[in-house]
Nucleic acid binder design. Sequence first.
DNA 1: ACGGTAACCGGAGGGCCACCCCGGTTGTCG
DNA 2: CGACAACCGGGGTGGCCCTCCGGTTACCGT
Lengths: 216, 216
Amino acid sequence: MPEDAAPTPPGRPPTHPAPPARPQRQPQPQPPAMRADARRNHDRIVAVAGAVIAEHGAEASLEQIARHAGVGSATLHRHFPTRQALLETVFKGRVEALCAKAQDLLPDPDPAAALITWLRAVGAHAVANRGLGASLMQGARDADPALGSTCHAMIVDAGDALLARARQAHAVRPEVTTTQLLKLVSAIALATEREPDGAAEADRLLSLAIDGVRPR
Amino acid sequence: MPEDAAPTPPGRPPTHPAPPARPQRQPQPQPPAMRADARRNHDRIVAVAGAVIAEHGAEASLEQIARHAGVGSATLHRHFPTRQALLETVFKGRVEALCAKAQDLLPDPDPAAALITWLRAVGAHAVANRGLGASLMQGARDADPALGSTCHAMIVDAGDALLARARQAHAVRPEVTTTQLLKLVSAIALATEREPDGAAEADRLLSLAIDGVRPR
DNA sequence: ACGGTAACCGGAGGGCCACCCCGGTTGTCG
DNA sequence: CGACAACCGGGGTGGCCCTCCGGTTACCGT
């Protein structure tokens, strides 16, 4: 084995992390494809992790996930060197859906309403999939951009477009940033996600934060 | 040992949890005083826990606290059957200070400003003492009122007075509750408490939530 | 002053977890 | 079809939370 510190560390993230179905593509976008069994394990881990996390929250036991997926814990750690990496992969689909929703809302005639609708959707997803909010906020802190904070970057980009339009229409305070809004939504989700009726309470708190504490 | 399930479970909370120095007092407010060594250990654990939690956050290792206090982990668990109980004791002083501040702000001529000032103070304390916010929110979920949710009850009562005055002056939306406001503040603190400059960011987010996203 | 008693202490151990090492296995490519 | 490298996972390490139990010590009555 060459001992140079390649750009991909020993437990390298899968160079081909399973885009669900994309037959049309240039022949070799990424030369070193995964071995078949490796990919199979990877996908099973992601599937099981989604189920377990949905039920037990984001700090579910990694060993339990590995056991339930029928692989050794070492395999899980090889595929996902950190818990955050696993969460990013699991929530990738949800985040992509939210980004798509942002795109759909862009041509809305009322930019403020579009932004607020989207923030509500983000909040709803965050409380529904326990740990998504924490994952997004954690991604905001991760300095290393190469290692997995793609979810955070994606959703910030999507929100930026909506916020820019709303700001241009003077429908939001000019000093507000997308990161702040997402932090607010994530914080509310994180605080309410383990309450009996978290979704409703989260939506109420979000409305309060958007409209302000004072009346009119 | 009698096997009946007495109202106080085996690891009973200290009946005399160390009011720092109060020589003048009726002879027997609480008959079963703690033994001297027990109290000494109790106080040392609280002191050390305050320091460790301030540095490492609310989920610091209990064994580490016990080690650093020079007691066995069993002693810590006997004095504080749950982590929440320890946090409550550690943060009691801070919470009392916040309650006192609420009292001081009650006669303020501007009820809305008084409420907002107080919420800011709560937020500042929550980010400064890592874990206080989480502790307050956790207290809100604890169903058992006898076992330690006194901090939450105290601060809700203090906030209720301020909120009632503000509501009477039509300075806040009538449907807002104290619990919601505290949840909002705690959530923001929780989300920002481990950022490089959390205090400033928390204050900005709190302002945003109070004034609303839309301008004017 | 002193002994008896019960409250209290903390070392040791069990169960669970994240993470890593290394010999055996298996997919892949010439 | 055979060799090689990538990959697997059992087992070990260290840490955590929590509990049991034999030894210790403060307290109180005499």
